[in-house]
Design a binder for these strands. Structure first.
Length: 500
RNA sequence: GGUCGGAUGGCCGAGUGGCUAGGCACGGGUCUGCAAAACCCUUUACACCGGUUCGAAUCCGGUUCCGACCUCCA
């Protein structure tokens, strides 16, 4: 029996605004699409948070026993800097400024994106399609939409006819909670919109002038596809007309995801996504982290602490842990105090985890209550993860277990107080939850080999000194190591060490 | 302006009607040659005003403040 039957997953579906039991289209299989980055600049920590949410979801789905196809695109068509016809495309602009080929820009920032995700221990998606690699699919989709009468061509551009779509299907605005009349009355007056029949219409193919670098031939002339279209085309290609989960940042809900739904319905007649998931924003002093506000950190600034808003640097795993301590649907505020607290908490969790790995079972007098408590904490961790991916609550369960593990490591509790089955389950699942599901790997640089030998030598010398009551020597060893970032811990079983 | 969401203790952050969230910090204790780590105990809450209810942080109404989206944005 697969784990997903023991711990059925529920997901808050943004489309209905309700938490629902997750039932995939095809038993045992999950198709999941997440909107990836536009590769015209370095990713920042806010971007990382969104991808983290879906990395953990992906890991958890796999752990539950699903076979998952995870598609996350790379947007490498530039799209416009603003919504004006004359607007330059973002990648072309960057290329011009840096005197590069557009594809050099794309490659550079795609590499940066991959490096960053690797740093934070993200799993690779099953398929990572690029928009430029799927121009044909996008053109085909535009043709379908045109054939079905939900788009019109003007001067080599094709626009999606929102009012007409609304009349026929009536669901535009459902996802984002917009009302068409409100949208119309609030539309800003922008230049170059005279081609559109309604200000709500959006381009699915855009005519390109000579200045445009990234452009392709089509039956409507030379141009490039609209931004919203690539996700519809690529999700359809790899996951089908209907698929299970679509994720992305909250800020993509409107217009991007709303338009995706409209395009798919207009082309194929069915709503594409069964469960919409939106990850909330990372904030700094209460404001969304974004490049334009100048309050974003790059991963390297974060690690070195080399940023005016940071007091010191933090490791990627510390940040990952920090983010997982909140729920993905809440905004999370980024501050030095919060990071400091997370760093210490994470160290505590890791210490417990390492202690547990070293413990072995010795039968002894059973403690039924404790045995039950451990089982129930492990069950809770899974139930919380299955409850709309509540990593915050699952981590609280892990800390409860950390207290018991530490008691065992300190000799206050004996492993024999647990049944052998419980002990083995704890040992296996504790590490699984932290490492496989939450993706929190140990970061110690070098705790083996020569380093370990040297440490044991020092510990032995210090032990000898302590025996001789030569505390000057023993303290010198401990304090010098401490200054180097190595912590000695005297316990009943002898001295151990950990590296900060 | 429109739409949506938020306001929890010193800090971060879960929690949707009654049952200790958790982490960090603070205080006390145990252990230790001293420390650190660990363990035990302990303190500080639900923006404001009304209402519903036997009972509300949680539901309803109002007020204030904050944010997101409405234009590219994870």
């Amino acid at each position: 029996m697969a784990r997903y039957q023991d711990y059925p997953l529920s997901i808050y579906n943004s489309y209905n605004r309700e938490k629902e039991i997750f039932t995939p289209l095809h038993e045992g299989h999950v198709g999941m699409y997440v909107c990836g980055p536009t590769v015209y600049s370095n990713v920042h920590l806010g971007n990382v948070r969104t991808f983290l949410t879906f990395d953990v979801l992906y890991r958890y789905l796999i752990h539950l026993g699903y076979k998952v196809r995870y598609v996350r695109n790379i947007t490498d068509v530039g799209h416009l800097v603003d919504d004006v016809d004359e607007g330059e495309d973002k990648i072309a602009k960057k290329a011009r400024l840096d005197n590069l080929e557009p594809m050099e820009v794309v490659q550079m920032y795609t590499n940066d994106f991959h490096n960053t995700l690797a740093l934070f221990n993200f799993l690779s998606p099953s398929i990572e399609p690029t928009a430029t690699g799927h121009i044909i699919e996008q053109i085909q989709m535009i043709e379908q939409i045109l054939n079905n009468g939900f788009a019109y061509e003007v001067n080599g551009s094709v626009y999606f006819d929102v009012p007409k779509y609304q009349e026929a299907k009536g669901n535009y605005g459902q996802l984002s909670g917009r009302v068409l009349e409100d949208l119309i009355s609030n539309t800003r007056e922008l230049d170059g919109q005279d081609e559109k029949r309604s200000p709500l219409d959006f381009a699915i193919w855009k005519n390109a002038d000579e200045r445009h670098i990234m452009k392709w031939p089509s039956s409507w002339g030379i141009g490039f596809p609209g931004w919203h279209l690539e996700c519809s085309a690529m999700s359809t290609k790899y996951l089908g007309k209907e698929f299970d989960i679509h994720g992305g940042g909250m800020d993509l809900k409107f217009p991007h995801h709303e338009c995706e739904i409209a395009q798919s319905v207009a082309a194929d007649g069915v709503a594409p996504v069964h469960y919409w998931m939106h990850s909330n924003m990372l904030t700094v002093n209460g404001q969304k982290m974004s490049k334009s506000l100048g309050n974003s950190f790059s991963p390297s600034e974060l690690m070195t602490g080399n940023h005016h808003l940071l007091k010191k640097g933090y490791s990627p795993m510390t940040v990952r842990f920090f983010m997982l301590q909140s729920h993905y649907s809440s905004t999370l505020d980024f501050s030095n105090d919060a990071l400091d607290a997370a760093e210490k908490g994470f160290r505590r969790l890791n210490n417990a985890r390492k202690s547990l790995a070293k413990l072995s079972y010795l039968s002894g007098p059973m403690d039924e209550a404790l045995n039950k408590e451990i089982q129930s904490s492990l069950n809770s961790a899974y139930l919380n993860l299955s409850d709309d991916l509540n990593t915050a609550k699952a981590i609280a369960n892990l800390f409860d277990l950390a207290t018991r593990i530490n008691s065992m490591a300190g000799g206050k509790l004996k492993p024999g107080a647990l049944s052998e089955g419980t002990f083995n389950r704890l040992k296996q699942e504790y590490e699984q939850i932290i490492n496989d599901i939450l993706g929190l790997r140990l970061e110690e640089s070098d705790e083996s080999g020569m380093m370990d030998g040297l440490m044991h030598l020092l510990i032995d010398i210090r032990q000898q000194a302590r025996k001789n009551k030569d505390f000057a020597t023993s303290d010198q060893i401990r304090d010098t190591l401490s200054a180097l970032g190595v912590q000695l811990k005297d316990g009943p079983e002898g001295t151990s060490y950990s590296i900060e």
